[in-house]
Amino acid sequence: MDGLDGLTTSPFSRRGFVMTSLMTGLTLATTSVAAQAIHTDAAGLVAGEVSIPAGDGPMPGYRAMPEGPGPFPVILVIEEIFGVHDYIKDVCRRLAKAGYCAVAPELYARQGDLSTMTDAKVIIRDVIAKTPDAQWIADLDAAAAWAVSASNGDETRLATIGWCRGGRGVWLYAAHRRDLKAGVAWYGPVGGERTAIQPRTADDVAGEIHAPILALYGGADTGIPVASVEAARDKAVAAGKSVELVVYPDAPHGFHADYRPSYRREAAEEGWTRALAFLKAKGL
């Protein structure tokens, strides 16, 4: 894993894929699931569940892209801890409406069936903490290759966007992928516990990123101190890298998740507009 010292490609789970298809509907792992504030139709798009060749078999995922020959810029969509459910699928369609081939692989398909899990703490303990960073990074690489070979993706225009744990993934993937053009990290933790299979934090790799990052965070996020994100940004800038940090003072963690009580419409919409402008400015 070039650019991520300490990461090695570990053996895939001997259980194979626990999830062989995506969940239907929204995650069960919330105390209060509201109707989605945003629903994006598939008119003018090629959108739906796909099977992505991975290192040890077909990996379920969701793809949305414009109709037409392309090639389209590729956006790798990194899920929250809750799986590729209807919110993440809708995000892919939103990106496709903006002209992108958006692909969201189910990165936790080997570790657990997120469609049946109702407790976020159990998901973190039994699924997230047991997923090696090297595994999901390799899966994102596989998704990128598939997007180019099978989905009219432009191999010269690759970016990533992620939420929560997926926001952490944006930082790490930017330190791994030398040809990445941009990353957008929505409230991804920059610190956290280091383990044998998750040996480095986003802060650890901030000075090693290969692509500019737009970091969108909430000032009222009780789990991610703004000072820690500022420190990661400053480390990146000191190393000659580019991190644009935007903090929405009154927004909590999950402010873009329009199916949860944490949703803050104004911050979510402004952040989305900013994210699209950032991607366009980076040639995507």
Rank of each mutant, 00 (worst) to 15 (best):
E67C: 10
L216R: 02
P105S: 03
G70S: 01
I52S: 11
A220M: 08
G61A: 07
V18D: 00
L140R: 04
L158I: 15
A267Q: 04
R274L: 15
L158A: 00
K280N: 08
I38Q: 14
G3N: 00
D221N: 02
A277G: 05
D119R: 05
W146I: 00
L214F: 07
C92E: 01
H256Y: 06
A109N: 06
H39Y: 13
V247T: 14
P132W: 06
A182P: 04
A96M: 03
S228Q: 12
G192S: 06
A182V: 01
I224C: 08
A182Q: 04
D5Q: 09
T222H: 13
A134K: 07
W163F: 15
G68E: 06
Y108N: 06
A138Q: 14
W186T: 09
G183P: 11
D90F: 03
R260Q: 14
L172W: 08
V226P: 13
G6Y: 02
E208H: 13
V77W: 00
L107T: 11
D2P: 07
D234V: 07
K181S: 15
D221W: 07
Y248M: 11
P105Q: 05
D250I: 10
T116V: 13
A185L: 07
A231N: 13
L180R: 06
R178S: 11
R233M: 14
W136D: 02
A34F: 06
I137Q: 11
L284Q: 07
L26V: 06
C101F: 03
V91E: 08
E67F: 03
A144N: 05
K121W: 12
L214M: 10
I209H: 02
V205I: 12
A104T: 05
R260L: 13
D133R: 02
P53L: 10
P105A: 03
R14D: 14
K121T: 14
R125E: 14
E269I: 09
F82M: 08
A109P: 01
W146N: 01
